[in-house]
């Protein structure tokens, strides 16, 4: 409390802004307290002004946030523990920020590489399944392409070994474009490409071919290159296919036929423009069942043999059914997953 004379002229506003006065109000034991007491006794006329200024300051109250009981103590103990654990903490503190960051990144990147190596060295099975009406393309580890038709599944290992044949397992229908690996006269194991489908294995010798496994029947259509069809039943001899060949195998091996046909038609579905030319209603029904997963019931056996003259586009089940109902003059009843076709 310096320069006491000035206070004689002080208003309330002056007092509340005065640091020494504030200290006296806030802190009864301030070194200036005695001086203020003396001053006030000498200036009784200032008492009301001082009192009002004091009330203004005292009206200030603050929200107090207190830590939960024991929290400060716990924090202190933890800190002592850190202080008393030499080494780690000391080293960390001595390294400056940049180095600490660098060390952290090196550790992170190292861990990342380790995990990546570990994952890439594992053989992880890959499973691709298509839903009703859906196609999917799959790029195999050797960059061979597979187009998977609706309601089909393909399974293979994410990583193919250098010294083992390439192998995939198929259910349903898929068109393969296989990378031809030819590194010399002998066929090295990794140059072989095997498709397992049901009881049959199709061995590929670099090539485009379609496999369709639907309704107790496997059809292999070769578009280009060469494939060898082998059977799990060793009594059956292998079938070597030429481009344009279609091999149809039933589950019991009783009926194995090989015909020459326009096998390009077997890839039409990959463009999702399935065109059947002069098909019977039975053929159409089968295809719709396969691709859209519906059950199609022909109410009258005579319906099965009825033909649609000309081409019919089957890339939408609703469109196809509409065309059938108009062209063949039939009634179509849809009930959940069952479609019943009746003569009108």
């Amino acid at each position: 409390m310096q320069n006491q004379e000035k206070y004689s002229d002080y208003s309330v506003r002056d007092f509340i802004c005065d640091e020494s006065f504030q200290d006296w109000v806030l802190r009864p034991d301030t070194p200036d307290a005695a001086a203020w007491q003396t001053w006030l006794q000498a200036n009784p006329g200032k008492r009301t002004v001082v009192e009002e200024a004091r009330k203004v300051l005292e009206s200030l109250t603050f929200r107090v946030d207190r830590p939960a009981a024991g929290r400060a103590q716990a924090s202190l103990e933890k800190t002592w523990q850190m202080i008393d654990t030499p080494g780690r903490r000391g080293i960390l503190r001595r390294m400056n920020r940049v180095w600490r960051m660098a060390a952290m990144w090196i550790i992170l990147i190292g861990a990342g590489i380790f995990v990546w190596l570990w994952i890439s060295n594992r053989t992880v099975p890959v499973l691709v399944t298509t839903a009703s009406g859906q196609l999917d393309s799959v790029l195999l580890p050797d960059r061979s392409m597979v187009v998977l038709n609706a309601l089909s599944t393909i399974r293979y290992q994410q990583k193919w070994e250098r010294d083992a044949p390439r192998e995939v397992w198929l259910e349903g229908e898929a068109l393969f474009s296989v990378q031809h690996l030819d590194e010399g006269d002998d066929v090295a194991p990794h140059e072989r490409f095997l498709v397992h489908v049901g009881h049959t294995t199709v061995e590929v010798l670099g090539t485009r071919f379609n496999i369709r496994q639907r309704r107790e029947k496997i059809e292999v259509a070769l578009l280009s290159g060469a494939v060898l069809v082998r059977f799990n039943n060793k009594a059956r001899s292998d079938i070597r296919m030429e481009p344009g060949d279609l091999v149809v195998i039933d589950t019991s091996y009783r009926d194995i036929t090989k015909i020459s046909t326009n096998t390009e038609n077997y890839s039409a579905w990959t463009r999702k423009r399935l065109v059947l030319t002069n098909p019977t209603l039975q053929e159409i029904a089968h295809y719709l069942e396969d691709v859209y997963g519906k059950r199609i019931v022909l109410d009258d056996p005579d319906l099965a043999g009825r033909k649609v003259e000309g081409p019919i586009l089957l890339d939408s089940i609703d469109d196809a059914l509409f065309v059938i109902s108009t062209v063949l003059d039939v009634t179509i009843i849809k009930e959940n997953d069952t479609i019943t076709i009746k003569p009108r």
Partner: peptide, 16 residues
């Protein structure tokens, strides 16, 4: 330790 506990309480209140 004494300063720690004291400042802990004050900083907690301030920080919140």
């Amino acid at each position: 330790s004494k300063v720690y506990l004291l400042l802990y309480t004050r900083f907690y209140n301030y920080g919140l």
